Amino acid sequence: NITNLCPFDEVFNATRFASVYAWNRKRISNCVADYSVLYNLAPFFTFKCYGVSPTKLNDLCFTNVYADSFVIRGDEVRQIAPGQTGNIADYNYKLPDDFTGCVIAWNSNKLDSKVSGNYNYLYRLFRKSNLKPFERDISTEIYQAGNKPCNGVAGFNCYFPLRSYSFRPTYGVGHQPYRVVVLSFELLHAPATVCGPKKST
């Protein structure tokens, strides 16, 4: 009989979030998941669920729940959905087409922007091929755009693959930082360890 609440607040209220290319994953298990708490945590810009209804979450049980978190800019949030393409979905964080879970995003301009520009958040701009779903690539190998090998040196047709967002508070919403948490629900042929409040007794 599990009584402890799932530590969603640790994920959502973390002081620092990860850069999207090096997104963070927390496995959540053996706890009571009260998803209604999430609705009250922040004024969400996005709370979209796929393959599951957000209002039914509190009635369900899962084997595992994974919470992935990272920062992107406002106009990239739409890429965090099944079947999307674009720089983020292709080279940084890719959801599977049959994704079961929820994408939660909110504006973090007050936390993640600086007047002089916050350069701490990076994204991958160049990659030889698209990522597979939930693949994480943290390599910093020089990207070869031409025929000549780069031998690890940046220059003509040889690019450092990561680029930094420079978040400034005066930017338009599309270029402001957004914190994203992706909850993916895993149903294996194994005992369910993460249940809503109704199912945990």
Rank of each mutant, 00 (worst) to 15 (best):
C102Y: 03
V77I: 10
P177L: 00
A192M: 14
P169C: 03
A42G: 15
C31T: 06
R127H: 05
C6A: 06
A89K: 03
G174F: 05
D90T: 09
G51Y: 05
E141M: 10
L57P: 07
S29W: 09
N58G: 12
K198I: 13
Q84W: 07
V77F: 05
F70V: 00
R136E: 03
K148I: 13
S200Q: 14
G155A: 07
L41G: 15
R179M: 00
K128G: 12
R136T: 05
Y123L: 15
S184F: 09
R78I: 08
F45D: 15
V182Y: 01
F70E: 00
Y178R: 04
C49W: 09
L38E: 04
L60P: 08
Y50S: 03
P82G: 04
I28P: 02
Y123A: 13
S184R: 08
R27T: 13
D90M: 09
G101N: 01
N58A: 13
T140A: 12
S164M: 06
L60S: 10
E141H: 11
I28T: 05
C31Y: 06
D34P: 08
H189L: 11
V32Q: 11
K198S: 14
A190I: 11
S139T: 14
P82R: 03
F185Y: 11
S19M: 03
L122F: 11
R124E: 00
V37K: 14
R124V: 00
S129W: 08
K94Y: 03
L5F: 13
R27Q: 12
T3V: 10
G51C: 05
Y121E: 00
R136V: 06
S36N: 13
E76H: 09
L38A: 07
N58K: 13
T3K: 13
F62N: 07
T46A: 12
V173T: 13
P191H: 13
L187I: 13
A14F: 06
L60F: 10
P197S: 15
R25E: 01
L111F: 10
R124Q: 00
V181C: 05
V77Y: 04
I2D: 13
P149H: 11
T55Y: 13
V194S: 11
A22F: 09
Y35M: 14
S29C: 08
F17L: 06
Q144K: 08
Q79A: 05
T140Y: 10
L122D: 07
F160I: 11
K56D: 12
Y121P: 03
V180H: 03
V103P: 00
G74S: 03
D90H: 07
L122K: 15
P161N: 04
S116Q: 15
D68N: 03
A81Q: 09
A81C: 06
L57T: 09
K132C: 08
Y91T: 04
L111K: 13
G83M: 11
H189T: 14
P82W: 03
L111D: 11
V181L: 07
H175A: 02
Y143S: 02
D90K: 14
S139Q: 09
Y119N: 14
Y178F: 15
F44E: 15
I142M: 12
S116A: 13
F45Q: 15
V37I: 13
P96S: 08
D34L: 06
C195S: 08
G101Y: 03
G152T: 07
S19H: 04
G155T: 07
I28H: 06
K94R: 08
F8V: 06
K94N: 06
T3P: 11
R127M: 03
C31F: 07
P161D: 02
Y35G: 09
N157K: 02
V11T: 06
T46Y: 14
P82L: 03
L38T: 06
P96T: 06
V32W: 11
V173S: 10
G146L: 02
N118M: 05
Y93Q: 00
N118A: 06
Y93A: 01
Y21M: 05
N120P: 04
Y143P: 00
R73A: 07
C102R: 04
W106S: 04
T100E: 08
A154L: 08
T170I: 01
L5K: 14
L60N: 10
H189M: 11
T201I: 14
R73V: 00
V180S: 02
V153M: 14
F70T: 01
N30A: 09
F62K: 07
N109M: 05
F126E: 00
V182A: 05
T63A: 12
N87G: 11
A14N: 10
E10N: 09
N157S: 03
S166I: 03
C49L: 04
Y66W: 13
C158V: 01
Y159K: 00
F62V: 12
E135T: 08
P96F: 03
A14E: 09
K56R: 14
P197E: 13
E10G: 09
G117H: 03
V194C: 10
I104K: 03
N92I: 01
D137N: 03
C158Q: 02
N147G: 07
H189F: 09
Y35R: 09
R124G: 00
F185S: 06
D59W: 10
V32P: 06
Y121N: 05
E141N: 13
N118S: 07
E135H: 08
Y66R: 07
Y35I: 13
L131M: 08
R127C: 01
C61H: 08
E186C: 07
D68Y: 05
L95N: 01
R124N: 00
R127F: 01
I2V: 14
E141L: 08
C49R: 03
G146F: 03
N4S: 13
A105K: 05
S164D: 04
S166D: 01
T46R: 13
R124I: 00
I72G: 00
V182Q: 01
Y50L: 02
A105D: 03
R163Q: 15
D90Q: 13
A67L: 12
F17Q: 04
C31W: 06
F185I: 09
K198Y: 13
G86M: 02
Y123I: 11
E76W: 03
Y93E: 00
C195P: 08
P43N: 11
K199H: 14
I104R: 02
S116N: 13
C49Q: 02
S29Y: 11
G86D: 01
N4V: 11
A18D: 08
N118Q: 07
I80A: 02
Y39D: 11
L38K: 05
N13L: 12
V115C: 05
V52F: 13
A89V: 06
Y143Q: 02
I2N: 14
R179C: 00
I72P: 01
C6Y: 06
Y50A: 02
D112L: 04
D59C: 08
A18N: 13
L5R: 13
P177Y: 03
R168Y: 02
V37M: 14
D98V: 08
S53A: 12
T140F: 09
L95Y: 02
S116C: 06
F47L: 15
R73K: 11
A67T: 06
S36G: 11
N120V: 08
G51H: 10
L60W: 08
G74A: 04
D98F: 09
P149A: 13
T63G: 11
R163G: 15
C158K: 02
E186I: 07
Y178Q: 06
E135A: 08
D75E: 10
K148P: 05
K199M: 14
I2T: 14
Y119H: 11
F44Q: 15
A154P: 13
A22H: 10
C6P: 05
P169M: 04
Y123E: 04
N120W: 09
P149F: 08
L57D: 10
V65D: 01
N130W: 08
K132P: 06
Y159A: 01
V103C: 01
C6L: 05
F12A: 07
N13Y: 10
Y121I: 07
F8N: 05
F126H: 06
G155V: 03
V32K: 12
C158S: 02
Y39H: 13
Y66H: 08
T85F: 08
S108K: 01
N92W: 02
A33L: 14
L111T: 03
S116W: 08
L41H: 15
